[in-house]
Design a protein around this nucleic acid. Structure first.
Length: 787
RNA sequence: GCCCGAGUGGCGGAAUUGGUAUACGCGUUCGACUUAAAAUCGAAUGAGGAAACUCAUAUGGGUUCAAGUCCCAUCUCGGGCACCA
């Protein structure tokens, strides 16, 4: 008895692939190219999880499929290594992020190899490698040169105890998630990328993308374009008790319905609006100031959770330009400072929120009786999308290549001084001024930057202080797909010739980052296309967004619940990588979430064991080859299998092409079941192994080697699909009443089929009189009598 | 609240263009092999019915010779957005 021993087979092939590197992509080869990638992972200390395996296996199947079809395939791999977990680990243990990352990457690589992935290991990318982040810094400088990287004061969450900035999600009920201290909002100068510059193009090109509708809709909502008008409301002359002539005398509001202006009975400003302090009068000032201070303290989440309207009257009035009437100006936190102008004209008769506010505070609600013939104000388009805040007060990130002179003016680090290396420190905690641990590297902070003297035109070196913020990790991942084309290029971020050959990416697969990452790479592609550095404006042709794998009970897997399934455990338990890969494809449609089912894993393993038995146990490869005429001229002994093979080739090929991996596996299972009944020739086994190879590459390689076959993707002989006999379905009133097995030429002869159908005894039971109507569908091989 | 997506056996799911509903797998049952068990192999498996047949794709209508598929309404679940003026 010759049993399937996956671990043995897999070790053999993995060693061979390690030695021979057969998955290298050939730059500029003549064969048509396919460039495929998954969203590169953050290599956590926990190693691969089954969700990674699903994602990577989808890409692997496509890579192998296209390689077997003769394409020049590029399937690289990379690691998104900057990030908080490594930094927090360093703060806790003192182990540097550099060395923790190195260990984690090595572990990931080892695990990936245990899965037998088709990866061009010469193109491995690591974002925390200075040779990589050098070019991330270069990208920043290109954006900076064009004014698309800029500094702006903005409010940030600040924990006074931990002395650090917090993200919105790290603030719980107004308290720091770590120490519980009440957080403050602190105005800080931060770096931004001006993604809003491309808002229109990012929106318009969404429709042309071969991406899931879900993602396209999310991006559209995120960009949130709306068109309307900005209208100026003059302040009523006597409205300000603090009469200051230099004060601005108009408030600009944004509205999508300028036609409703006759119903505007008051104005509302966001608490952060700069005019609020000026509008407050002697009497109202204490209340206004308290309201604004309270609002600032509330988190965005709290402000949105509490839908009960709150607000306060400023004491000032404005003039409605349509009616000439004096209307009161209020402050309320249901107006968002970051959207539009941070001020609205309230039309309680037309807007639900304004009505609610007016009812609560007893303000006038006036029906919109007429609409102005000429629209007020000037046309204006606004977006929900804000500029991308990229400053992070973190150690473990790509340093922003900027230095400040004595007056705190920013200067770019000259490109020939890149990379700005991350300095080594011994303590990774942020310092007490809200700066990252980079600030502790006192020697590193000082840098001499060439400055051109405006008067003399001469260049001199000026001592400056480096920026201590690092870049958002999303910046590092915004261009890595282009680095894959020339991962070791030392002259450019990417080699233009190689970019022209490989890019854009044909298929990108992932399960996350619907708006952030997938919007940022589009933004950078457009920017660098404008710079003449990329020959395309959309970086990803087809996007596959795969579902999650949940625990057997349907809940999310998590360490704390203790329900995590470790893919290496599945492999090592004896199932092997081929079973794991094939199971995760068989689990269901790739784009839906699925629950892990241990019994089903066993079912897939049984299937692969049957494949193995077919090739090695029921007969030896030598005998099979002899019998099917591979080694002598004897005719193939199982003629009915030729159409079966053709059918299977067609199904598996088409299923992979439409990403229906679960049904492709089903088709292979059916083929194997049929071969168990009919017996299998060498030809049958070779075709089976070729079709199986993308899913179970080790086992398939083992079979193909023993059967002296290459792995070229088989072509379906369509003529074999047309059998001599066809089955014709006979319905009466749409219900199945009989089946006729007839020579194929009968499909051309409707009358004859009708005659034969009416001779069927069962059909006769339901057709007592002459049918009113007869419908014959040749394509469906179906006859329907209407009685 | 708004916008998407989905609802098919005991379970995961299939049905690609309106044309044989329930492929494939799991589970269950029976049989073979075995002293026995496991493994393996074979058979059965939507419900009702002895059968003929009838009824079944969330619910109720509709269009059609024919509907899981198209249309209308309702319910349930999942996802996204959520005071965006």
């Amino acid at each position: 008895m010759n049993r399937y021993e996956p671990l043995k087979i897999e070790q053999k092939w993995q060693e061979k692939w390690e030695k021979e590197s057969p998955f290298r992509a050939l730059d500029g080869a003549k064969a048509p190219k396919k460039f495929l990638a998954e969203m590169f992972p953050y290599p956590s200390g926990a190693g691969l999880h089954v969700g990674h395996v699903r994602n990577f296996t989808i890409v692997d199947i496509l890579a192998r499929f296209y390689a077997q079809k003769g394409f020049n395939v590029l399937r690289p791999f990379g690691y998104d290594t900057f990030g908080l977990p490594a930094e927090n680990y360093a703060i806790k243990t003192g182990v540097s992020p550099q060395s923790a990352t190195k260990i984690n990457v090595e572990n990931f690589r080892k695990q990936l190899k245990r899965l037998g992935y088709y990866i061009d290991w010469d193109r491995e990318i690591n974002t925390s490698n200075p040779e990589y982040y050098r070019w991330t810094q270069w990208c920043f400088l290109q954006l900076y040169k064009k004014g698309l990287a800029y500094q702006k004061e903005s409010y940030q969450w600040w924990c006074p105890v931990d002395q650090t900035v917090l993200a919105n999600e790290q603030v719980e009920n107004g308290h720091c998630w770590r120490c519980g201290a009440e957080v403050e909002k602190k105005k800080m100068k931060q770096w931004f990328f001006k993604i809003t510059e491309y808002a229109d193009e990012l929106l318009e090109e969404i429709d042309s993308l071969d991406w899931p509708d879900k993602i396209k809709t999310m991006q559209k909502n995120w960009i949130g374009k709306s068109t309307g008008a900005e209208i100026e409301f003059e302040l009523a002359p006597d409205s300000q008790e603090t009469s200051d002539s230099s004060t601005k005398t108009a408030i600009t509001v944004f509205t999508t319905r300028p036609d409703t202006i006759f119903g505007a009975t008051f104005l509302v400003l966001a608490p952060e609006h700069p005019l609020v302090p000026l509008l407050a009068t002697e009497n109202t000032r204490p209340a206004v100031e308290k309201y604004c201070a309270d609002s600032l303290k509330k988190s965005e989440i709290e402000r949105q959770e509490n839908k009960e309207k709150t607000g306060v009257f400023t004491g000032s009035y404005a003039i409605n330009p349509a009616t000439g009437e004096k209307i009161p100006i209020w402050v309320a936190d249901y107006i968002l400072s970051g959207y539009g102008t941070g001020a609205i004209m309230a039309v309680p008769a037309g807007d639900e929120r304004d009505r609610e506010f007016a009812e609560k505070f007893n303000l006038e609600i006036r029906e919109i009786e007429k609409t102005p013939e000429k629209p007020f104000g000037k046309e204006k388009t606004t977006y929900r999308m804000r500029d991308w805040l990229i400053s992070r007060q973190r150690y473990w990130g790509c340093p922003i290549p900027i230095a400040y002179d004595k007056s705190r003016n920013p200067h770019p680090i000259p490109e020939d001084q890149l990379p700005v290396l991350i300095p080594e420190v011994s303590d990774y905690k942020p310092d007490n001024t809200g700066r990252s641990a980079l600030a502790k590297a006192t020697d590193w902070l000082k840098v001499k930057i060439p400055v051109v003297d405006e008067k003399t035109g001469e260049t001199h070196l000026e001592e400056m202080t480096r920026e201590t913020d690092t870049l958002d990790g999303y910046a590092c991942s915004s261009w890595y797909l282009w680095r894959y084309a020339s991962p070791n290029c030392s002259e450019f971020a990417w080699d233009p010739e190689k970019i022209a050959y490989w890019e854009p990416l044909d298929i990108y697969c992932g399960a996350d980052h619907a708006v952030a990452h997938l919007l940022y790479i589009r933004f950078w592609a457009k920017f660098f296309a404008d710079e003449g550095k990329l020959p395309f404006r959309e970086p990803v042709k087809t996007l596959l967004y795969n579902g999650y794998i949940n625990a057997p009970d349907g809940k999310k897997m998590s360490k704390s619940k203790g329900n995590v399934i470790d893919p290496l455990d599945v492999i090592n338990s004896g199932y092997g990588a081929d079973t794991l890969r094939t199971y995760e494809m068989f689990i269901g449609p790739y784009d839906l979430d699925a629950a892990w089912n241990p019994r089903s894993v066993g079912g897939v393993h049984r299937f692969l064991s049957r494949v193995y038995a077919l090739a090695f146990d029921k007969q030896t490869p030598e005998n099979a080859l002899k019998n099917s005429g591979k080694t002598d001229k004897a005719p193939e002994e199982i003629p009915q299998n030729a159409p079966l093979r053709a059918k299977t080739i067609k199904r598996v090929t088409e299923d992979i092409e439409r990403y229906s991996f679960n049904t492709a596996v089903s088709a292979l299972m059916e083929f194997v079941n049929d071969l168990y009944k009919s017996g299998a020739s060498a030809e049958d086994i070779i075709i089976l192994a070729k079709l199986l190879k993308p899913f179970a590459p080790h086992l398939a390689s083992e079979i193909l080697e023993a059967y002296h076959s290459d792995d070229s993707w088989p072509v379906c002989d369509e003529s074999l699909l047309e059998s001599d006999l066809v089955q014709i379905i006979v319905q009466v009133n749409g219900k199945l009443r009989g089946k006729l097995s007839l020579p194929a030429e009968f499909l051309e002869n409707e009358e004859e089929v009708k005659k034969l159908a009416l001779e069927d005894k069962n059909v006769q039971k339901f057709v007592k009189t002459t049918p009113k109507k007869t419908i014959f569908v040749k394509k469906a091989k179906l006859l329907n009598f209407v009685v």
